[in-house]
Amino acid sequence: MAETSIPENELERILSLADFDLDYTNHQDSFKDLARLAAKVAGTDISLVNLIDTFTQWTVSNHGLDLDQMPREDSVCQYTIMEQDHFEVEDLSTDARFKDKFYVVDSPKLKYYYGIPLKNDDGYNLGALCVLDTETKEISPEKIELLKIIASEIVNRLKTFKAIDALKLKLDDATEKQKKVAHDIRGPLGGIIGLAQIISEQGKDNQIDEVLEFINLIYKSGRSILDLADEILNSDKPQAVKSDEFNLLLFKDKLEKLYLPQAKNKNIIFKIKVSPASGSTPFSKNKLLQITGNLISNAMKFTPNGGEVIVDLNLKIKKGEANLLRIKVTDTGIGIDKQTIRTILSGSAESTDGTGGEKGYGFGLTLVKHLIESLKGTLNIYSEPEQGATFEVNIPQA
């Protein structure tokens, strides 16, 4: 069985990570410059920006090693998030915890590791910035301080992306108000610009340089605000799916990209079905990747090699009331007894190991239940021992 390392504040930590509502496939370019800079500072061939959720280490950006994800129990960074300052392994090939891992035994045959926790403002380690090499290294204290600065900048960018997403949502909600403001400011600004232009032309005749310069500034400032008003007025052109939305087809593609590698790794058949009638209707993607991803990873954990995990996505259109998004994750795994189902739904489930020896963390389903309730949704579980399990999530959509 793989050895695992779990922080004492694990539930709070994964809740903090879920609060960022990240799509782990979308940030490769967002941190690429920082990953490259970290490797250059440390003098290593490889650097990774890793975020660690309940089951998986997601490499959101990499330099020198083409890696997207790996099981949490196989990672070195699972130990880094246990630390306050750093975690270092001088030779992975002689450390009992790592010497048999695929990245040590096979290409690129890594030896050296140095990781710094990615700590948020509440003190929770969301993941790690790590530098790695095929040769042993020694990093000076000055370079370590620079790596810590880079790690802080990674967290700052995560916070910035979250703020931008929140702002986009507010802007979408305030479209009509924006249009009214834009109309209100456009008329007076047009008059100011026209007046400034007339004065500017008269000033040229009189060669009043100071007045000309001042009026030119007014003209340029007014012009830029007028352009902004036009941009706001034109921003409500028809758009099938906004940045904070999915439809069933997009949702299906995203889940396949994220979780097909895990299914192939365990030799599990993984299928996603969508209801064709509502496949292109948009709905909020808020927390959906975190909810569904945890259910899929949990299903794969308890499904043996050669088994199946099927995801069924359905959006029920209701006239005059909220649409209903239904997500069903069904597996052919070891099943759950009624007492365990009651324990899960009460939010007090304990961890158990998976069919392939994967170490349980005991927090995935607790996180899912918390997120579903925050969206005013419901969770149902249908299962019998040795008969597989179905997790059904219903979330109302405005």
Score class of each variant (00 low, 15 high):
227 D>P: 00
251 F>P: 00
281 T>R: 06
225 I>H: 12
303 T>A: 07
287 K>V: 02
297 S>C: 14
282 P>G: 03
272 I>M: 07
231 E>Q: 15
294 N>C: 00
231 E>A: 11
238 P>L: 02
268 I>V: 15
308 E>W: 12
218 I>M: 11
304 P>W: 09
218 I>Q: 09
255 L>A: 04
284 S>R: 04
226 L>Q: 14
286 N>A: 09
254 K>Y: 02
280 S>W: 03
269 I>Y: 08
243 S>V: 05
279 G>H: 06
237 K>T: 10
226 L>H: 12
249 L>I: 08
242 K>L: 15
271 K>Y: 08
239 Q>W: 01
265 N>H: 10
309 V>F: 09
248 L>H: 05
226 L>E: 10
285 K>E: 03
271 K>E: 08
289 L>T: 11
267 N>E: 06
309 V>L: 12
309 V>Q: 06
260 L>R: 06
267 N>F: 10
227 D>N: 14
240 A>R: 13
218 I>K: 05
306 G>C: 13
290 Q>K: 12
230 D>S: 10
270 F>H: 02
220 K>T: 03
305 N>W: 12
217 L>S: 14
283 F>Y: 15
220 K>I: 04
284 S>L: 09
291 I>P: 04
262 Q>Y: 08
228 L>V: 02
302 F>G: 02
301 K>E: 14
224 S>A: 15
266 K>M: 10
250 L>S: 10
269 I>K: 13
226 L>M: 02
248 L>F: 15
281 T>D: 03
247 N>F: 08
279 G>S: 09
250 L>V: 02
244 D>I: 07
235 S>E: 11
298 N>K: 10
255 L>Y: 01
297 S>P: 01
300 M>H: 07
227 D>V: 06
255 L>E: 00
228 L>H: 06
274 V>Q: 03
252 K>W: 03
243 S>Q: 14
254 K>N: 04
293 G>T: 00
308 E>Y: 15
225 I>E: 05
236 D>R: 09
264 K>H: 14
289 L>I: 13
296 I>W: 09
278 S>R: 11
223 R>H: 09
218 I>C: 15
305 N>L: 13
295 L>R: 12
249 L>Y: 02
268 I>F: 07
269 I>G: 04
264 K>F: 05
268 I>C: 01
246 F>D: 02
240 A>G: 05
244 D>Q: 12
219 Y>G: 10
282 P>M: 02
239 Q>S: 11
224 S>E: 15
298 N>M: 01
220 K>H: 13
301 K>W: 11
272 I>W: 07
306 G>H: 14
267 N>M: 08
232 I>G: 03
273 K>I: 08
262 Q>F: 08
259 Y>A: 00
304 P>F: 15
266 K>D: 11
249 L>A: 08
277 A>P: 00
227 D>S: 15
302 F>S: 01
295 L>Y: 07
260 L>S: 02
221 S>G: 09
256 E>S: 05
232 I>A: 07
256 E>Q: 13
266 K>A: 04
238 P>R: 06
217 L>R: 10
242 K>I: 03
284 S>Y: 04
228 L>S: 11
265 N>L: 13
256 E>A: 07
289 L>R: 03
246 F>T: 03
226 L>D: 10
268 I>Q: 00
307 G>L: 15
290 Q>L: 06
220 K>D: 13
